[in-house]
C-alpha cells in the first residue's frame, strides 16, 4: 500500500489560497561559486488574487515558483500557503502548470488529467468524472480520448491546466504557461484563463515575459530585478474587469506598461 504522500488535511477556517512569503532567500551552491538567486523576498498575496511576476531573465521567478510549489526549499526565510509551510509538493493546496505542457505521451488527455487523482488512489469512476469536468472547464469537451500528439500546442496546454485544476487546489502556479504559443492562441488562452479564474476564485501566481500579458491579466504585478533577485516594484492594476481587447490601447494600460518596462530596462 502506498502512503498517501504529501497531503495536508484541510484546516477549516484557514484562509484558502493565501500566500505569505517572508524574507525568503535562495542560494545555489555550484562548483565554482555560490549563486544568490533570490535575496530577502517578501510578498503577501491575498486569497483569490491574480498576481503576475515579471523581471529580467535569470532574476529568480521560476525559482520562487518552485519554492511555492514545494519542489525546492528556500535557504532562508519562510513561505506559508494556507498558513502552513510547504516542505514538499501538495496538490491539494497548490497546482503547478509549466511552460512545457509536460503531458505523459502514453496517456490520453483524460488519463493525463486523472493522473494526480490516480496517485491518490481515487476510484476510477470518480476520477473520470472529475477529469471530464476539468476538460470541459478548459474548453476541451470531447477531446478526452486523444493522445497528446493528436492535440495542438494550445490544446496541450489546456490539458495541462485541466490537470492543475482537477484537484481543485486554492493556489495555481503558472510558469510562462503560454510562452510556447503563438500570439493569437496566447490571447485567447489569456481570456480563457481569466474566465476560469473568475469562475473558481483561485489565487493565481503567473510568470510571464510579456508586459502586455502581465498588465492585461493581473490584479497585481510584482516586478523583480536580477542578481540578486529582489522585488523592486509592486503595482496594483486597477483596470476594471472583465478585461477587454480595447483596454490594450488605453492610456492607463500604457502608463502601467511603461512603468514596468523602465524597471526591467534598468536592472537588465
Amino acid at each position: 500500500m502506498q502512503p498517501l504522500a504529501n497531503v495536508t488535511p484541510f484546516k477549516p477556517g484557514s484562509r484558502a489560497g493565501a500566500i505569505q512569503i517572508s524574507n525568503v532567500g535562495q542560494v545555489f551552491k555550484t562548483a565554482t561559486q555560490d549563486v544568490v538567486a533570490l535575496s530577502d523576498v517578501s510578498l503577501d498575496i491575498k486569497p483569490g488574487r491574480f498576481v503576475v511576476l515579471v523581471g529580467p531573465s535569470g532574476c529568480g521567478k521560476s525559482t520562487l515558483l518552485m519554492m511555492l510549489a514545494g519542489l525546492r526549499q528556500q535557504t532562508s526565510g519562510t513561505i506559508l500557503i494556507n498558513e502552513a509551510p510547504i516542505p514538499q509538493p501538495d496538490p491539494n493546496r497548490v497546482g503547478v502548470i509549466f511552460q512545457e505542457p509536460s503531458l505523459f505521451p502514453w496517456l490520453t488527455a483524460e488519463e493525463n488529467v486523472e493522473f494526480p487523482l490516480a496517485l491518490r488512489r481515487i476510484p476510477r469512476s470518480d476520477r473520470r468524472a472529475k477529469a471530464v469536468d476539468a476538460l470541459k472547464l478548459v474548453g476541451l469537451e470531447g477531446f478526452g480520448k486523444r493522445h497528446p500528439h493528436e492535440l495542438s500546442g494550445g490544446m496541450k496546454q489546456r490539458v495541462s491546466i485541466a490537470r492543475g485544476l482537477v484537484q481543485d487546489p486554492p493556489v495555481l502556479l503558472m510558469d510562462e504557461p503560454f510562452a510556447a504559443l503563438d500570439e493569437q492562441t496566447r490571447m485567447t488562452m489569456g481570456d480563457e484563463l481569466l474566465r476560469i479564474w473568475a469562475a473558481t476564485g483561485k489565487t493565481v501566481v503567473f510568470v510571464t515575459h510579456s508586459l502586455t500579458e502581465a498588465v492585461y491579466l493581473a490584479d497585481e504585478v510584482v516586478v523583480m530585478s536580477a542578481r540578486p533577485g529582489r522585488i523592486v516594484d509592486h503595482l496594483t492594476i486597477s483596470l476594471p474587469r472583465p478585461r477587454t481587447y480595447e483596454m490594450l490601447g488605453g492610456e492607463t494600460f500604457g502608463t502601467l506598461r511603461d512603468r514596468i518596462w523602465r524597471h526591467i530596462r534598468k536592472s537588465a
Binding site: Q2, L71, F98, S102
Partner: peptide, 16 residues
C-alpha cells in the same frame, strides 16, 4: 526531466 518534475509537483512518491 520535465515529466518527472510534473509528477513530483502532483505529489508522486518515488515508487509512483
Amino acid at each position: 526531466p520535465q515529466l518527472l518534475l510534473a509528477a513530483r509537483s502532483m505529489g508522486a512518491t518515488l515508487s509512483q
